[in-house]
Structures are given as C-alpha cells and as structure tokens.
Amino acid sequence: MNYYLLEDNVVQQRRIQQIIESCQVFDQPISLLEALKADKLAKVILLDLEIRTVENVGLNVAKMIRQFDTMSQIIIVTTHSEMLEQGLKYHIGMIDFIDKAQSEILFTKRLLSAVTEAEQQIRLQSGTQSELITLPNGKKYESINLNDVIYMTSSQSQSHQLTVCCERKNIQIRTTVKSLPKLHQNFIQIHAAYVVNKSKVVAFNGQTNTVQLNNGVLLPCARKYLKTMRQLF
C-alpha cells in the first residue's frame, strides 16, 4: 500500500512520518496530483486543509483527486477542526478527520486507526469489482455502487417514488420501476413493483413463485415474469 501526504509544515511532516514511515511527502498540491495520477493502485492519501495559509486548498485538491480516482481513501489532517466535517465526508468520501492540536498519544492513536480503516476499505473494494451505476432521480442523477444494490421497489401509494435497498442503507429517489431494467443487465424486473439485482438472488422457489435475496428478503414474482426467472435459475 502506498501512502501520500500533503503538508507544508516541516515539523508536522516529520511528526506524521514518524508514525507512518513509508509515507511520501509533498508540500505542493501540483506535484502531489502528478504523483497520484502516475500511481494507478488504490492508495491512502493524507491531506492538510490549509497550505501556505490559503484556506481550503486541501478541499479543492481532494475534489480534484476524486475526479480521476474514486478508489483511494482520503484522510484529512488539519487544525481546522471546527467545521465541515460532515460536508467533507459527504463530498469527497473522506474516511476520517484528525485534529493536529491534540496530544501526541491521542494523535498517533487516531491516525493509526484511521489508516487501518482506510486499508480495510481498500481491501474490501478490491475483492469486488465496483461498478458505478447512475440512477435517474427526477431531473437529477444519483450514483450508486452496483454491488451495493439488492433490490428496488416502488412504494404502493405513489408509483414515482422508488426505494433502493442496498447492503447497508436505503435510498429513496424519484423515478419509475419501468426505467430500471434498461440501466444494467443485472437488473431484472420480477413484479410490477420490484426490480432485483441478479447477483443478489439466492434462490427462486417455483412453487410459491418467490425470489429469495441474500439479505433474507422474500419477494413475490409475478406470472408475467416467471418465464425469464425460470430460465435464469
């Protein structure tokens, strides 16, 4: 695993290098970005938000990184702990936010745990092929990892409200069930109200016409779609 650090303060550079020895240090955003582009593997990137007293440089760098690299994990190391924690998590998918102004022992502990989590995330991702899929949401779009999606259903009362059930979360967007199977070959419609992800189907019961998914949910299969389901399972 490769580690990169963007930090302009020499003392802080040394401080972090003592904790993570194999860390490559940069004090210029441009050189960091070039190095990152050259390295195609997933990596752990540590960023300081404030470089040469210009605020939010780190944030812009993180955004630029995300444009060409979604696999790497970003950790923010900064003194600006007062704001934007949630925003950053949300915006650039950063994994942790570490305050420089804490005591040495706490700092080391936090940094190490953050790096461990980042490595774990990367390992998890590398096991599965991640493919981003763009779901229409009204006039906007919502990007989601194909491997996360288990099934999608429209709430009974309003046909344009669609709930996407993922591995660890549920998302509600505004679209129709009909439009989903066209998005990816893995999406199969089994009912007027249900579309399942093919790779998440565990079993198909031909007698009760129910489809079992990997999270234990049982969904009914309508007669119209029985033929395709029988062919697949």
């Binding site: 949401n137 006039k139 906007k140 919502e142 979360k169 549920n170 509600q172 967007i173 505004r174």
Partner: peptide, 9 residues
C-alpha cells in the same frame, strides 16, 4: 427541486 432520502444504520 429533487429530494433524495438515504437511510443508513
């Protein structure tokens, strides 16, 4: 205006 609702653990 579009609204997306996400429920996590």
């Amino acid at each position: 205006i579009e609204l997306t609702t996400i429920a996590e653990q």
